[in-house]
Design a protein around this nucleic acid. Structure first.
Ligand SMILES: [Mn+2]
Ligand SMILES: [Mn+2]
Ligand SMILES: [Zn+2]
Ligand SMILES: [Zn+2]
Lengths: 154, 154
DNA sequence: TCCTAAATGATAATGGTTTTCATTTTCAAT
DNA sequence: ATTGAAAATGAAAACCATTATCATTTAGGA
């Protein structure tokens, strides 16, 4: 994270986009975020220091950031997409634990060696077998978190 | 698949639901489907032999079937949910290859032994480490299918 | 056959996301 | 610094998958 506005400006230009204040602030919100953000989460954060912001701009910027490979979009089944920085920008690649009851999401990236090796191998085997060019993968384990497990004992 | 109406009737009753004609037809559509179906896909199929059907009933039945553990819901990022029969009803557990360009979806269940073993181990390790009760997992590899790979050479 | 709870479907409402379009901003060329 | 064309913005309306309402029908045990 924290490459600063100078670096971002260059990156946007490289993709043919202009660097604007809304875009810079949105990236800043991402970089200081501790969790997965919805479009509205981002809107509300940006609004605090840039009340002129429009929700439309949030969505358009999210599209751009996805195309530039700077954020990833996830759907955890609650009807709204969530976004987070990827790669060396902030968090490293990780998988998810999703609570079906309260929606809590746990990231884990402390993969066991086998997990890393297997996914490398899988991407290779699958792309050859199905003549598929794999860009990325997503893994989610769904169930009940610690708190919701207790609640179920009613 | 193909347990027939008699078996389904019992299964619905066991969960406290009534067996109705719409529900029987919806299950039949699922059992002969060759791919992942959206709510509207199902609606259109059912409509052919039961024109009185309402889209609302499709959605309500999908909820019930999910609760009964007979179908699974997936989100492949195109804005609508897809559903498919689960388990011994038709298809076995499998993972997905999703084309980011045309939306084509490939199921694969010919897991290599290592993959099966790893996921067993992962579910055990993760559920202990995070005190999480894991119900199921989903794995998706995203990229370009064979045809879309060629199209990209423009 | 009867009765009541459950199920249905037409319709309206919801809510996240996208489109439209008139106005503003960026930034490379001057 | 000024200028101007292209890109970006935001208010508002449109979109569209899904859900809620509610009057009517149906399933299935008594
Ligand atoms: Mn995450
Ligand atoms: Mn599948
Ligand atoms: Zn929970
Ligand atoms: Zn494709």
């Amino acid at each position: 994270m924290g490459r600063g506005p100078r670096w971002c400006h260059a990156r946007f230009r490289k993709f043919g986009y202009k660097m604007t204040q809304p875009r810079e602030i949105i990236l800043d919100v991402f970089s200081r975020a501790k969790k997965h953000l919805s479009a509205e989460d981002i809107y509300m954060e940006v609004y605090k220091i840039y009340p002129g912001i429009g929700l439309t701009t949030i969505y358009r910027t999210l599209d751009i950031l996805i195309n530039m490979g700077m954020i990833s979009r996830h759907d955890f089944g609650d009807g709204r997409s969530r976004y987070e920085l990827i790669g060396d920008l902030k968090s490293e690649h990780h998988h998810h634990l999703v609570c079906l009851s309260c929606g809590k999401i746990i990231d884990y990236s402390d993969f066991i060696d086998e997990e890393i090796k297997l996914f490398d191998k899988l991407e290779k085997v699958l792309s050859e077998k199905h003549n598929f060019e794999i860009k990325y993968h997503q893994v989610g384990f769904y169930g009940l978190c610690d708190k919701c497990k207790l609640t179920k004992l009613s």
